[in-house]
Amino acid sequence: MTPVTHPMSVTSTSLVSASAGLRRRIWPAVAGCLTAMVALLLAVPSHAADTAAVPTAAVPTATAVPSMDLAPDGVLQNGLLHNGLLVGALLFALGLVGILTRRNMIVMFLSAELMLQGVSVSLVSWSRYHGDWGGQMLVIFVLTVAACEAAVALVFVLQAFSRTGRLDANAWQSLRESVLPRTIDQALPPLDGGVTHWPTLTPAGVEPAHDEEALLEREHV
């Protein structure tokens, strides 16, 4: 990619700094959540202890319930379900992070779609596990809703873009509640790479006057 030399990026580049007040209120809660969760995870006992307690005698043979993939030891073989749910959870969480933190409205919508994908994977995993179609049905409707959402959302994004000339969600922070602090942008350092130098051809005839800066800064041929 050629570096940015768009005037917008020089004058109004920004470094996000949420206000100190907001951060002071949120930090303890977040830190507490993370610590509590890690503690929870560490406190979880290992799997081996549980499976030992399974009463094998009470379980019918595997052939009776082919949909449930019963293993001989009587534990439901839910590996596919487990892994599918794990993938779904990861996708959902990644989508959540994206929609919380990115400022480009299109990328935010991509993140929302990512969350929908996570949900779809989870639903289909359960559908496979239970051997019925309910989950897959729901995914079809998720697809429908996603299509509707994308259509309407894109229209709004386009409208917003045509008003501000940017895809920045923070361009609309005046819509926030008045008690919430504003995000103040600071200047960003320029990207590495410097200015691209374009080859200059030998002139034929009388050379017209050029705008040298425009020649150096153009990004298209």
Binding site: H6, M8, V16, C33, A89, R103
Partner: peptide, 26 residues
């Protein structure tokens, strides 16, 4: 073409990363 300023920064990356991690953990 090019990279807009708002693509080069994100709002509260640490908070949201932790939020995502907590969600995955739960």
């Amino acid at each position: 073409s090019g990279l807009a300023s708002y693509d080069r920064v994100s709002s509260e990356p640490m908070l949201s990363a932790i939020a995502g991690a907590v969600l995955v953990g739960l």
